[in-house]
Design a binder for these strands. Structure first.
Length: 128
DNA sequence: AACATGACGTCGC
DNA sequence: AGCGACGCCATGT
């Protein structure tokens, strides 16, 4: 009886992920963004080692909804300084609101003086 | 396993 | 200078 080895009840994605997933790292980088500052997906991606994974960063932000501690995804914009993800907020426009409250001026869905407010994790966290 | 999608980025026209 | 297409990496179907 009992032929073959009975496979243990493995839950889906039980041990699939390790302690740190690309999302976890991404969230932490974003959380490090100081108030009144903004960063870009590409910069964060480069900081986590996914230089070309800018899309993954955006993907991670999408999952960041309800993640604790809260992830200031509104401080993350594209390389253009444009609030590309504003439509993913609830309600849309919340992203701009939050930025304005933090002192970041937004015009036409784009961060004003983006390069000035740009916070590069690679530079700030990089050991000189 | 292959295809399609995505909060980006870069190159080409 | 504005629009289109490809590339990247991960996820879902």
């Amino acid at each position: 009886m009992a032929k073959k080895t009975t496979p243990p009840d493995r839950k889906t994605a039980a041990a699939t992920q390790k302690s740190e997933s690309i999302y976890d790292v991404t969230y932490q980088i974003v959380r490090l963004v100081p108030k009144g500052r903004v960063t870009s997906y590409g910069a964060v991606a480069a900081a986590i080692g996914a230089t070309s994974g800018a899309r993954m960063v955006g993907y991670a932000m999408n999952l960041a909804h309800g993640v604790k501690p809260k992830v200031p995804a509104h401080r993350v914009v594209n390389r253009n300084g444009m609030l590309t993800g504003k439509h993913h907020f609830q309600p849309p426009g919340l992203m701009e609101e939050l930025l304005l409250k933090e002192g970041v001026k937004v015009a036409n869905d784009t961060v004003v003086d983006f390069e000035k407010l740009f916070w590069d994790p690679m530079v700030e966290l990089a050991p000189r």
